[in-house]
Design a protein around this nucleic acid. Sequence first.
DNA 1: AAAAAAC
Length: 425
Amino acid sequence: MNFNSFSFHPAVVKGVAEAGYETPTPIQSKAIPEVLKGRDVMGLAQTGTGKTAAFALPILNRLVDGPRGRAAALVVAPTRELAEQIHDAIRALGRHTRLCSAVVYGGVGINPQIQALKRADIVVGCPGRLLDHLGRGTVDLSRLDVLVLDEADQMFDMGFFPDIRRILSHIPAKNRQTLLFSATMPKAIRCLANDVLRNPVTVQIGTTAPAKTVSHAMFPVAPHLKTALLMKLLGRTRTESVLVFTRTKYRAKSLDKKLARAGYRSASLQGNLSQNRRQAAMKGFRSGEFQILVATDIAARGIDVSNVSHVINFDIPATPEAYIHRIGRTGRAQCSGEAFTLVTGEDTAMVKAINRAIGSPVAQRTLPDFDYDAAPQGPGGKKVNSSASRPQARGKRRAPKPRARRRESKGAFAWLAPKTAGGTP
DNA sequence: AAAAAAC
């Protein structure tokens, strides 16, 4: 089978060819005909198997001959980086169609977006800024043909669902084609998702499982030795780009600093960074300037960076779904990848849940030349014991380094601050 | 100490 069998418009065919696509992936060959028919689709397929093109191509094809500049399709994504990536993919695939894509998300100026929306046929965006535009009347979804919720199970999650419902209320249900895509779709959420679909067809490739191209292992370790074990793993593994996940924004930031101090070309990506810094981190990671990206779950879903040979869960993810999405950042498009997860005693229940979700236990590994019994270390990197607990006694005090960058734009601990407007203390 | 998403 090849892309000719879909009878795409010549302009779409040209875009597909220039993108270097030859053979449709299973999700593409099964979902594209349904989308072309105008059916509502729930599309489920493993990470890295081409879901974006599975909805982008039939949408471009549907709009290519229609009237222009009316926001005929909307794609909603859970992070700014993913929205940007989808927008780029649509632009590349639609290069020869004269269709116009606009991307809207927060953290950047709204005026350029308002200008871009005026002539947009396809709008890609994150929920918050999209609602902002809807409130201002700078985007009109009243004549929308196709709605896509990417990472659909996350969009129906508690944190996003209210926004999604509000966006839906701006779209006339009549004639609306709705497409949901994800690698995961927990049962509890599937019912909610089916509520927005009309007479849907479910296109599911395989089962909810990690991509087969990823081999994975768990590394039991004491919490205080995680950083040392990570360094050991990095030192003894032949890697290309490495994506490291942490549980919190603060841990991403501080682990990035430790890696940089150890000489790695590293950056962090988390939601407390300014959008400029987020873009710089992504750009540097994509280009290879940063070999390591330390990220929160902001980078868990959808992000497609070539040459990611390893995903390392420095902290175990909070759900089996997050595990599947995180490790799916490697092993994409038939390449192979490895995923390492550091696990501590507290993670036992989640390890079991992950093993259950995957259907077989993930191998547990230990490094022969690693000191698993090392004592906790003090702040100066020295072992804490009765005599070394006073740093000055070691005679090794360093002069404090002048700090060029004191804090991130919003403050490193901004998320700790109360949400209500604060008075004077 | 969850993260993400508008101002």
